[in-house]
Simulated assay, not measured.
Amino acid sequence: MKKLNGKIIAEKIKNNLIEEVKKLKEKTGKAAHLVVLQYGEDEASKAYAQRIEKNCKNIGIEFEYQQFIEEPGKFKEILKKANQDPQITSIMVQQPLPKNLKDSLEMINPQKDVEGITSASLGKLFVGLETLNPATAEACMEILDYYDIPIKGQRAVVVGRSNIVGKPVSILLQQKHATVTMCHSRTKDLEWELKQADIVIAAVGSAEMIKGTMLNENSIIIDVGTNFIDGKLLGDVDFDSAAEKVKAITPVPGGVGTVTNQILMRNIVKSFKILHGITI
């Protein structure tokens, strides 16, 4: 079994971005500027914003964080201003959001949508146009590419159909000419589907749901899961049992999540280039 270490890939992306950001500053006299907007007091969202801030500072990206409590009108007003402000080149809206603000995600300027979550961004991905792709879906592809894992003609099974991972990664795999099967909570025989797979993308959000006995010995496993159980981070795949059987697997932590963090940074730089008319 080969462990697909995401830390190596993340470090490579980070170092490339540091150099690119430096050159962009010399060329334009400006820096990419991310604003993160949070509504409410969700501690996990706040902690995530702090990790993003650290990554931005490491690369040379300007970071701004604003939190709103019981001010839905002001939240939308600031979001509109961020869309229009030429100094702000990237926008993230932290989730979860209350029902009365869920439509605010669609307010984000697609050119500043570094998470690739608006219908405009996802629509471009669907038809194969250049856009800002969801970072986790892109991270899955980055890992496959880095380790020279064949995709063309391979059978890929994606477990999970979210708009930020399952659906977009299925499209990215199809663009690389994989035959893709989408599985979810209502799939009749998940084990049968998994045993046919050359590549498995596990993004269902259920700790260690996929056991080694459900997989075939030649499969490549990309585990997107981030489940905190009793203070421990676990993937959607039971790593120990899977590692005894499969050809290669990403660890949790140290796999997809690590790469995702740097892909988000790359999207922030990409949005800066789009807004300044710099060839990507």
Rank of each mutant, 00 (worst) to 15 (best):
N100M: 10
K57Y: 13
E19S: 12
A44S: 04
I229H: 13
A135K: 01
Y65V: 04
E70S: 15
Q111G: 10
P134I: 13
Y147I: 12
V21L: 03
H177I: 02
T179L: 09
E244Q: 15
T118K: 13
N58W: 02
K23D: 04
L97Y: 01
A120M: 11
V35G: 04
T28D: 10
L105V: 12
V269H: 00
I222R: 06
A82W: 12
S119A: 15
K232S: 15
N163T: 00
D148L: 06
L234N: 01
N261W: 00
K247L: 11
K232D: 14
T89G: 05
V180M: 10
Q38S: 04
T181I: 15
Q111M: 12
A44I: 02
F75E: 11
M1H: 02
Q111D: 14
S241F: 12
V237S: 09
E208Q: 15
R186V: 06
A178E: 00
Y146G: 06
K30F: 15
I88S: 12
I91V: 15
N216P: 04
K27M: 14
K54E: 01
L234K: 05
I151E: 03
D240Q: 10
R161E: 10
K245H: 10
F239M: 11
E142D: 09
V224A: 01
Q84T: 03
E70Q: 15
M209I: 11
Q174T: 14
L264Q: 01
A120P: 00
I151K: 05
I88P: 08
I278E: 04
E217V: 10
L122F: 09
E26M: 11
I117D: 06
Q84R: 06
A178I: 02
N216M: 07
K30N: 13
I201K: 04
A47V: 01
A32K: 05
K270F: 07
Q95H: 09
K167R: 09
S162T: 07
Q174E: 14
P96D: 14
